[in-house]
Amino acid sequence: MSLLAEPLIQRMLLVGLLVGLAAPVMGTYLVQRRMALLGDGIGHVALAGVAAGWLAGSLFGLAQQDALAIPGAIVFAIGGAVIIERMRSRGTAADVVMAILFYGGIAGGVLLIGLAGGSNANLLGYLFGSISTVTWGDVWMSVGLAAAILLIGLGLRTALFAVTHDQEFARSTGLPVEALNMVVAVLAAVTITVAMRVVGVLLVSALMIVPVAIAQLLTRSFARTMHVAMGIGAVLTLTGIWITIFYDVQPGALIVTLGVLAYVAVAGVTSMARRGT
């Protein structure tokens, strides 16, 4: 138990718990809209934001060059989400929009980090996660952002379900459809920047989608899918982080691998149970 008294481990577990709870909430809405890969598109734009923040830090001569990396990621991710949502609402194919952001984000990130005098190695922590470097400042920012995600994502669940389930009907009822769609996109962007520290840009989408995919095998209701996915997300992140305390493995990769293995196991068991009945 003395390990739990270590501030670093407290920070890691707290951020992991918040991310594990918050990411599946937004993942449920993305799966509902059949936009499971949106997180990947926004994640790559966030990477360009990390590099832009890095560049700004070097231009301003900040002592800690990456001090603006996360704020940069938040700004870019939200900007990317707004662009995706506006183009989608104007009828542009969602997969094409995401592909453009996907490539533009990676290319922009590599170019900007070069201009900032850094190397691609500086981006690795953001590509694959770097939870062991979280500060208390990061923790409090994560607490604030995760609280906003949970408050809005859970509090407006019926309204966000209505809009993601049947936009045309929602519009006929007088719901502010465009505003609610934008809320989903922006919250997804915020979720990605929070989760980026834990699993990295390359795997951030997995933390949003895999728990939902597992929960869907077990439940038949939208609300229950969301709640079960939150529980699965929290267990996965806490388990993954706890294991990495004892073994030298990459936390993000371990968390996602555990999730995929859990999906395969649950799918196998539910399939056998169905055949048995």
């Binding site: 449920t28 799966v31 509902q32 809209r33 059949r34 499971a36 019926t158 309204a159 379900f161 209505a162 993601t164 389930h165 049947d166 009907f169 929602a170 006929s172 009822t173 007088g174 719901l175 939902v212 869907q216 439940t219 038949r220 209701s221 939208f222 609300a223 899918t225």
Partner: peptide, 19 residues
């Protein structure tokens, strides 16, 4: 049906929103 399972009760309840 949408991308995530939803009960008939949840779908009908969503009709109570808006104006």
């Amino acid at each position: 049906a949408g991308g995530v399972s939803a009960t008939a009760l949840e779908v009908v309840t969503s009709g109570l929103l808006g104006s």
